[in-house]
Simulated scan of single mutants.
Amino acid sequence: MFWASYLLAGLAIILAWPVPVLLSRAKWPARSPFTAMVLWQAIALAGGLSMIGAMLTWGLEPIGDNLAQGISALWDILIQRRPAETLGLVHVFAISAALLLSAHLVFTLLLTFYRIQGARRRHRDMLNLLSSPSLDAPATLVIPHPSPVAYCLPGGAQSVTVLSDGLMDILTESELSAVMTHEKAHLSQRHHLLLWAFAAWRAALPWLPTSQLAQRSVNELIEMLADDEALKKVDRPTLIRAVAIVGSGAGSVSGTESAAGIPAASTATVTGGGSAGEGVGMAGRLSRLLTPQPPLPQWAKALVQACSVLLLAVPTVLLFAPGLIH
């Protein structure tokens, strides 16, 4: 387990800096946003597991050949008060650091969820005061505002799409259908859950390049996924016009701009998509729609997905394989 801890530390470093930097600069994610989303999730999960696992396996190395044996021996020391002469101060520090980091990540995840839910409740209360139900579309609210504004407010069975009357006046019926499909895609594909997880990851480790680049890239990818879903219902020129018209106003197609006195919320708080400042840029979205690239071939998608599985399998094997490189 001694060498396993060093291998985990090396993997954690690779996933914390060069890999996310290279992936954030790559062009292929725009050709297959779902595959890229899977890879980003694997990088985040494997990076966190490797980071915690490196400290934990190194701390437990004197009392176990693998993680299960080490935890069992530590349990005997703590609960049954068996002697712990084999654990030095440095090893105790490593174990404590691993446990504290784990607790910090879980606590930040729950705290982020609590804050998001609170912000959504306040936002929904203001919408109840300032909006009116759409006569043409179910689960849709209309706010009085001259600028084109559209976003979705997740909430399970109470999820709604919010449109401004200014937007509805500007867009044609087909363009409005594109916007609606885009927003409903955020809700049906549960993009707000991804944003919650990556927002918590960034809040917990704001200094880590993975957390910053991952959140930005995930915001971009969910916009691409929602655009692709809209293209199944309307043609490309219609979606391009809708994106351009909405982008010319105060918000984006899934923006979080203030409207009719409703304050803007953070990216992961209200919408299922990114904000105008932190999500994918309007120019980037239009460029992708105007000059579409062929999707990744199936073998390339399979290769990326296999790499994602491998990223999760390697730290798991290093942690739990019995007697690994002792």
Rank of each mutant, 00 (worst) to 15 (best):
A94H: 03
A94I: 03
I95K: 00
A97T: 11
L99M: 14
L100N: 08
L101P: 01
S102A: 13
H104I: 04
H104W: 13
H104R: 11
H104E: 11
H104C: 07
L105D: 09
L105Q: 09
V106P: 02
V106T: 05
F107N: 08
T108S: 07
L109G: 12
L109T: 12
L110A: 12
L111S: 13
T112L: 00
T112W: 01
T112A: 06
F113H: 10
Y114H: 15
R115I: 15
I116L: 11
Q117R: 14
Q117H: 12
G118K: 04
G118E: 12
A119C: 09
A119Q: 11
A119T: 11
R120N: 05
R120S: 06
R121Y: 10
R121F: 10
H123S: 10
R124F: 06
R124K: 05
D125F: 06
N128M: 13
L129A: 15
L129P: 07
L129E: 14
L130D: 03
L130G: 05
S132R: 14
P133S: 07
S134D: 14
A137I: 14
A137L: 13
P138R: 02
P138N: 05
A139Q: 09
T140M: 06
L141M: 09
L141W: 07
L141P: 00
L141H: 01
V142I: 15
V142E: 01
I143M: 06
P144I: 12
H145Q: 06
P146M: 02
P146E: 04
S147R: 05
P148E: 00
P148W: 00
P148A: 09
A150S: 10
A150P: 01
A150H: 00
C152W: 04
C152Q: 11
C152P: 08
L153V: 04
L153R: 02
L153W: 00
P154V: 01
G155A: 07
A157D: 06
